[in-house]
Design a protein around this nucleic acid. Structure first.
Lengths: 338, 338
DNA sequence: CGCGAGAAATAAATCGATTTACAGCATGCA
DNA sequence: TGCATGCTGTAAATCGATTTATTTCTCGCG
C-alpha cells in the first residue's frame, strides 16, 4: 500500500536504518489507514532477543507480591518490554519448571523471586541455562546474579532499637509460613543489633514452617509453657502472616496489646492501620524494588552493565502505631537512612 | 539425530498423525538426549490458534484478583495453555489497549475482568476484534460473551435475610472505590429482597467513588448528619475496601461493633477472622470462578460450544462472625443453595 | 509378478517479521 | 568521463515450527 518493500516497512517501524522522509511518511500513513499492528511473536522469531521479560513470583495472592508484579509490569512496559508473569505457588519444583519455560520463550531476561533463597532450584536452573536474571526479595547477595531486596537487615535492626529503647527485656521473634531467606535476615538483623548494643534482653525465637494449624499450636504451646511473669513483653513477627497469627493467638488468650505485650510486624497491610489497636509495622518499598529490579535487569540485557553482580538494598519504612505502646514513640512514619 | 525429518518430529511431539512405533521411540530418545524443548513462539507462528490464553484483571494487588489470577493460570496450565496476565490498573483506556495487545499475540481466547462492566471499552474492543472471550466478575449477562461471576445477587439477598431476620430496622449499604457492576448487583440483591419480604426497614445507601480521603469524609458526614438515635443499627459494606473503611470510621467514633452497630461485608479476608470483633463476610468462590471461566472459554475456543452466550453464577458462602452480633446466628459457615 | 490401496515419511511452502547481501542511483573527486 | 562513495531500497535467506502435497514404502491380492 505504501509502495515499498516489507524490509523498508520494518525499518521504518523500528526507526532503525536510513529511510527517506517521504517513504517513511507513506509507510506511517498506510499503517494508520490499515490499522496495522505488528505481530510481536513473529517479530521475536528472527532475532535472538525478544522484547519480553519473564517474572516468577512465589505467589500472587498476597498483596506484597501482587504489588510487586504490578510494579514490575509497569516498569517493563515503560521500557517497551512485554512481561510474562507466573506464580510458582511456593513450589521449588514448579519454580525451576517455570524458569525453563521462560527460557523456551527466549525471554530477554528473567526476574525471579525464589521460593526459598538464591540457592534454590530456580536460580540454579537460570544459571545452568545461562539466562540473564535478577533475583528479588527472598535472597541475599549472590555470585551469579544481581539481587534486589528490601533492606531487611537494617529495618530489623531498627525494630530492635525501638523495642530495646522502650525497655523490653524479654522479646519473642516469631516466624511462620515458609522460613525464607528474608525471614532469616530479619532475625539476624534484630539479634545482631541487640548484641551490638550490649542488650541484656532475653530473646526467644519461634519459627514454624508447617501447616497453619501446626503453627497455631506452636504459638499456643510456647505461651502455655511459660509462667505469665516470664512472658515476653514484646513480639516482633517476621512476616505479615506471622503478625496475623500472633495477634489472633494473643487475643484468644486475652492478652492485651500493647498493655501486656507490644507487637510489631514485618510487612505492612491495610488492615493494620484500621484494626484496634492499630499494628506497628515495617513497610517494604515494593515500588522501589520493582523499578530497581527491572532497571538492573535491563542494564544487563542491553549490555550496559557487564560487571560483577551487585546486591541492591532498598530502605524500608518503620511505622509505629498503637501496638507498640502509647507515647513511647510518636505515631508517625520514621524513615531511616540506608 | 533420530534419522527422521522435522515434519515427523513435529507429528510425534504433538502425538497427532500416524507415525511408526519405532520412529516415535527414536524421536523420543533423541529429544531426551538432546534436552530438546520446542519453542512455543515459533510453534504458534504457523497456526492461526496459539495455545495461549490472555487474562486482563483490573488490579493484582488485591487478594481477590491475585487469587483469581492464580486460579486462572492453574486451570489454563492444566489444559495445556500458557497464560499471559496483565493488569489494567483500574483504567478503561488501558484495558482496551491490553485487549488489543492480546489480539496482537493471537491468543486463543481472552478472559477479561472489566474495570466497570460488560459495557466497557475492553469488551467493546474484544467484540470489534472478533475475539473469543469470557467476561468475569464485574459483569452481568451479556449478549456477546459468556460471563462468570459470583452470585452477588443471591448472596446479598441472604445478607438481607440475615440482617432483617435479626430485627435491624435501619440499615446502611455502603460502597466505596469504584462502583462496579458487582457492587450495583449487590445493592440490588439486598434492596429487592428487603422489598420482597415486605420489610419496613429503612435502607440508606452511600456510594462514593472518589479518592480515599473523600470516601472517608463521606462516611464521616453521613454519621455527623444523623441523630444518634436515628443511627442505623447495621451496615452492609459492599466491598472489602468498604468494610475496612467503615470499620475504621466506626472505631474512630467510638461506636461499638456489634453492640451499637452490626457489620457485615462483601468479600472475605484473612484479617477479618482475626481482628476483634471478627467480621462477618460473604466469601466469594474464587477458585470456582477461575475454573469455570477457563472451562467456558476453552469450550468456545475448541469449538465445542457454539450456542448463545451464557451467564454463569457461582454460589457464595456467608460467614457469620462476631460483628453481626452474638448468638443471633451460629458462628459457622452457612452455605446456601444456588 | 505386478498393481493398487493405504500407511508412513518427507520436501517444500508457510506463518510474519528481521537481517543480510546486493543493486540502483546520485554525488563528488580526479 | 570514470570510478569511488554514500545513501536508499529490495530480494532473498532466516528464525523454528506446522501443514500440504508428494513420494516412498508395505502389503495384499489377483
Amino acid at each position: 500500500m505504501a509502495g515499498v518493500s516489507a524490509a523498508t516497512v520494518s525499518k521504518v517501524l523500528r526507526g532503525v536504518a536510513s529511510v527517506k522522509q517521504e517513504n517513511a511518511k507513506r509507510v506511517h500513513d498506510a499503517v494508520k489507514k490499515l490499522g496495522y499492528r505488528m505481530d510481536p511473536l513473529a517479530s521475536g522469531l528472527r532475532n535472538e532477543q525478544r522484547r519480553i521479560i519473564g517474572a516468577v513470583v512465589p505467589d500472587l495472592e498476597s498483596p506484597f507480591f501482587g504489588a510487586l508484579a504490578t510494579g514490575l509490569e509497569k516498569a517493563a512496559e515503560e521500557a517497551g518490554y512485554a512481561m510474562i508473569i507466573a506464580s510458582s505457588r511456593e513450589s521449588e519444583a514448579r519454580e525451576a519448571d517455570l524458569v525453563a519455560r521462560m527460557n523456551d520463550w527466549r525471554v530477554a531476561g528473567t526476574i525471579l523471586t525464589p521460593v526459598r533463597s538464591e540457592r534454590g532450584l530456580g536460580a540454579e536452573r537460570l544459571h545452568a541455562l545461562n539466562m540473564k536474571a535478577v533475583l528479588v526479595d527472598r535472597v541475599s547477595a549472590d555470585r551469579r546474579f544481581d539481587t534486589v531486596t528490601a533492606d531487611n537487615y537494617a529495618a530489623s535492626a531498627s525494630v530492635a532499637d525501638l523495642l530495646l529503647g522502650a525497655g523490653h527485656s524479654r522479646i519473642l521473634l516469631h516466624g511462620a509460613t515458609r522460613i525464607s531467606k528474608s525471614v532469616r535476615t530479619r532475625l539476624q538483623g534484630f539479634t545482631e543489633r541487640a548484641r551490638a548494643v550490649g542488650s541484656k534482653a532475653r530473646i526467644d525465637t519461634l519459627l514454624s514452617e508447617e501447616d497453619p494449624e501446626a503453627q497455631r499450636d506452636a504459638v499456643f504451646r510456647y505461651f502455655e509453657g511459660l509462667d505469665p511473669a516470664e512472658r515476653p513483653s514484646a513480639v516482633f513477627s517476621l512476616s505479615q502472616h506471622s503478625t496475623l497469627l500472633v495477634l489472633s493467638e494473643l487475643r484468644r488468650r486475652g492478652v492485651r496489646v500493647p498493655a501486656d505485650i507490644a507487637l510489631i510486624g514485618f510487612d505492612d497491610a491495610d488492615w493494620m492501620q484500621t484494626t484496634w489497636p492499630s499494628i506497628s509495622a515495617v513497610a517494604q518499598p515494593v515500588a522501589a524494588i520493582a523499578e530497581r529490579a527491572v532497571a538492573v535487569l535491563l542494564a544487563r540485557v542491553e549490555g550496559e552493565n557487564t560487571g560483577f553482580p551487585v546486591q541492591h538494598l532498598e530502605p524500608c519504612t518503620l511505622i509505629a502505631r498503637q501496638s507498640t505502646g502509647p507515647d513511647r514513640v510518636p505515631a508517625m512514619k520514621t524513615q531511616f537512612a540506608e
